[in-house]
Design a protein around this nucleic acid. Structure first.
Ligand code: ZN
Ligand code: ZN
Ligand code: ZN
Ligand code: ZN
Lengths: 186, 186
DNA sequence: GTCCTCCATGTGATCTTATAACGTTTCAAA
DNA sequence: TTTGAAACGTTATAAGATCACATGGAGGAC
């Protein structure tokens, strides 16, 4: 519905971010999905908002508000913080982007249109971020909430660790025993 | 160990924070547990660090670094941000406190000594915070991580919602049909 | 004991992240 | 066309966090 082509089902469940077969279409699809979504909900998908989402979609990692602001300035938009923050607020409110609390940064939603409880995997080496689904209310946290009478409305789930690509790099560096263990860290 | 009495087992699993039978002992116990823990690990539990933990234990909610700093100043400690941040860093590194990413604030650990993956329930009305245990790697997130080859090292799990006490208040307000629905929101 | 080193503390300055406040513009409904 | 709500742009400022450097005390080497 969000676009002409039916979204592949596993795009919904598969964590997205560490691998991307077709990045160009990933941006285009994301933008048109957002456009459709806004149209059908009576939301104004203005140029700034569109540009911010485009900027986010072009990366597979979270961007700080001020990085986004820099790019907005380069594109001729306003150059003061509220410009970026307001657009980001719109995107987050409407499920088109997420804030990564751990990084104080923002990322395009990888499952737009779905009503989802996002979870993120953040690589501490390359800063890439992948979005997965979570169901925290069904585990230990949910049990604790029920036990105490706490009403969960929203959850932040962020895992920090090492992504497969960095993991491979580390492994192959270890194999180059002694060669460049420290300098390749940059 | 932390005191003469063996720590009750359910203190480990029970979420702590929304109710507290004996707050005074809660502070004292927390401090002596920390003291013992530092002693046995060769860590220096200095006056600033002790005071910061005491400040945190006195609250059942998360405090921002600058609030803590204000109190430190009142107590005659240094008054510049690094004083608070360094003490907080020590406490967090050693499992005596946690940072609540959602609030950019800090809270005393409710399960010190245990090797745990904390999860938090944050009341958006009264800002109280309860700590529970989580096992995010065992749910959907863990499955996603295994599927993609992501190595989880640490998790942030924070649920935002309404605590039982605020929930009761809201309910009883609703019963006062029409009286003060909007002003009590404060 | 003395010296020396490490670690913690205190301070000023600076940087990053986020919001308040206010006037102007845009847009769509009436 | 009028009009009111929402969005935009800008200035200023708040809130959160770190850098850099000097001082001071607890231990270990001697
Ligand atoms: Zn999402
Ligand atoms: Zn990586
Ligand atoms: Zn804890
Ligand atoms: Zn509450």
């Amino acid at each position: 519905m969000t676009s002409g082509s039916p979204m592949k089902l596993d795009a919904v469940t598969k964590p997205v971010g560490f691998a991307c077969d077709d990045h160009a279409s990933c941006v285009v699809d994301g933008l048109s999905a957002a456009e459709a979504r806004c149209a059908s909900n009576g939301l104004r998908f203005t140029p700034v908002r569109r540009k911010v989402l485009e900027i986010l979609l072009q990366e597979h990692r979270a961007l700080g508000a001020y990085v986004i602001l820099d790019r907005l300035r380069d594109e001729g938009f306003g150059s003061q913080p509220p410009v970026a923050y307001r657009a980001l607020d719109f995107l987050v409110r409407n499920g088109l982007a997420h804030k990564i609390e751990r990084l104080n940064a923002f990322i395009a939603c990888a499952h737009p249109g779905e009503n989802h409880a996002p979870a993120f995997m953040i690589c501490r080496l390359c800063d890439s971020v992948a979005e997965a689904q979570s169901a925290p209310a069904q585990g230990a946290l949910g049990a604790a909430a029920r036990a105490t009478g706490f009403k969960i409305e929203r959850t932040v789930v962020e895992a920090e660790g090492v992504c497969p690509s960095c993991s491979d790099t580390a492994a192959s560096e270890a194999t180059d025993s002694g060669s460049a263990t420290s300098e390749a860290r940059g």
